[in-house]
Design a protein around this nucleic acid. Structure first.
Lengths: 359, 359
DNA sequence: TCAGATCATGGAAACGTTTCCATTAAACTT
DNA sequence: AAGTTTAATGGAAACGTTTCCATGATCTGA
């Protein structure tokens, strides 16, 4: 049906080798010949078959991305960055979505076997030792985003620092009872980002001489519902926190919903700060710790392609900084209010109290 | 390096044909032989090379999805549906994101040539006659989602009916000055969904004997900013509308932002209804016309796979119904308010604040 | 028991490239 | 002009499968 390299060779009265050289821009072709071949290619509308091509060249010209819950805003924005670069570099993008441990293991074990992709981007998932070795033995280039392994180039955000800043920010606003809703560490996968964020909290607490109160630290799914339920629990304690730091924006949105349901005013009676800086956080004017997700996706894809072209490249660890985005869900702390007092604080009372705390 | 079919054949003392038959579950193999071959396959960890496989079988086992702005919530949810089915059916999913006309044309012209995918899902984009013919000539199965062509199986939502319901709903609430913010028809692509929604509006207007006022109908990008700017314009008219229907939820979110910026209370002074039913609409309690996007993605993928297995299948048109979701951005129409009245709304001050928090 | 039918099997050919080696043509050198 | 280097070219081999045909083994029924 479609023209093959043989058709072109015959029509141009050259050998298939020459046609191949023309296609691949080899310099070892006389200009006149190249012209002639090019003309025939154009006439026959010839396109080399990518499959036959990769059978022998061992290159597929495609990038695989293993990503959990790709539909979630955080991953979407990351994927957007990946897509931008892969499109620019003319690589196909194959999506491997992971929602269960079984799926993750499936991809981890199948992908290195047969090279359907030239390289693999793994997002928010840390391959274990056995799996890592498989990737290496198979010679499959791998780059990790939002996950770390000494074996692979890894792009991570400074989670400890980000969490530290969030909590420090709340402390500086005068908050003393600070709730923390963390994400599951071993829930579905090894999200050790969660652990880092907890560490950051500890550091800020330590620095401020604050006592760590375990009943103020909860763990939930990395989702809106998870955050909401945890917040409901946190906020119905006898001495409820005056501020809540959530390990992700989606969880923070859940906190907002919980507060609303309980009739607690944000930020007047409760400060809320999230983590991620996804689009909804902007819509809801949620204060948050922004991480440059799209940029991470872009750079991850770019590094992967570099690695494909030069497999000897040694793994590096690339850190991205977070940025605190103060919006409208955070405010100065009030002294704990009793029911009778809950109605109205005169204007300026809040800031006076906050100031007093700071001095 | 890795074992090939020849290694297996040798080790099991059979011919490669037999191994091939075992892999492909052909019944024409004696059980004893099958066992033996299977054992060797297991021992050598043999996996057939998908590339060599597709070179001869002309099957790649992958689905392509051409989708504009895949990062937008509407497309994301659709993609989620597609992914669910493609994962279940063990097809790889290749993403072709389109942000410009050039990109669209690039994919439209390249994809039918190189058979890198077994079938193509085209989302919200209508291929022209020439392109359609190319797809057909190349024998590439195509399914359209949120777009219609008589040449391909198409899944569409009843846009006319949906828009009609939205407007009728507003009219029944007593609104008479109803603004419509439509999406661009020829902005980037031929989104003729926009036209359908306009028609629905006309029908509702006609039925209610309402006059169509051109100055109340604007067109914007299918985005938050687009919606916001259009709303700003609509709301600063001398006789501003008491309700606005936006052709997409993202535009409706922009309307809410504009209203907030102008100090116009929703739903007290302005009713807003969107179209799509994406997750943010729920967060913001936006009334909207829900369309079963994920289901469309799922069914589209399923139909595409059917079409791949049976290319003779005749194109069909599948319609999905929308559903009106009444939430908290729509209310009864008030008589136009003057400035002096705008101050105090006694009822629900607290809930107003709470609502504000969520925006 | 034997002819005919059916089943199981082996392996060559084909898929459409790239790679590499051999060969021929062209360009220098002296 | 002849010898030597270098450039350009042709095409076989290889990549790892599936497909298909030929062959031999096994079964069937009288």
């Amino acid at each position: 049906m479609a023209a093959t390299i043989h058709d072109v060779a015959r029509e141009a009265s050259v050998g298939i080798g020459t046609v191949s050289r023309v296609i691949n821009n080899s310099p070892r072709v006389k200009p006149a010949t190249r012209e002639r071949v090019l003309a025939v290619i154009d006439k026959l509308q010839y396109k080399p078959d990518p499959i036959a091509r990769s059978l022998v060249s061992k290159r597929t010209n495609s990038l695989g991305v293993i990503v959990p819950f790709f539909t979630r805003p955080f991953f979407m924005e990351l994927l957007r960055g990946v897509e931008i670069v892969s499109a620019r570099l003319e690589r196909e993008l194959i999506l491997y979505n992971v929602e269960t441990n079984a799926q993750r293991d499936h991809y981890f074990s199948e992908l290195p076997m047969r090279r359907k992709v030239d390289g693999l981007l793994i997002v928010s998932l840390t391959p274990g030792d056995a799996v890592s070795r498989r990737f290496q033995d198979a010679g499959l280039p791998v780059v990790l985003i939002d996950a770390y392994s000494p074996l692979f180039t890894s792009l991570v955000v400074n989670n400890v620092e980000g969490a530290y800043e969030a909590v420090k920010f709340l402390i500086e606003k005068g908050h003393r009872r600070i709730g923390f809703i963390n994400g599951l560490i071993e829930g579905n996968f090894k999200f050790n980002q969660a652990n880092d964020r907890l560490i950051g909290l500890h550091r800020a607490f330590g620095e401020a001489g604050l006592l760590f109160e375990p009943e103020l630290v909860l763990t939930s799914e990395w989702s809106r519902m998870g955050g909401k339920q945890a917040a409901l629990q946190l906020l119905s304690q006898q001495k409820r926190p005056t501020a809540i730091f959530a390990a992700s924006d989606m969880q923070a949105v859940g906190v907002l919903e919980a507060a609303k349901e309980l009739g607690i005013l944000v930020p007047e009676q409760l400060s809320v700060i999230g983590f991620d800086g996804i689009e909804v956080s902007e819509l809801l004017e949620l204060s948050t710790i922004y991480q440059p997700v799209q940029a991470m996706g872009e750079q991850g894809a770019a590094l992967l392609v570099e690695l494909i072209d030069n497999p000897a490249k040694i793994p590096e660890l690339i850190r991205f900084d977070t940025k605190l985005l103060e919006r409208h869900t955070t405010g100065p702390a009030l002294t704990p209010v009793t029911h009778s007092e809950e109605q109205g604080l005169p204007e300026g009372e809040a800031s006076r109290l906050a100031t007093r705390h700071l001095l």
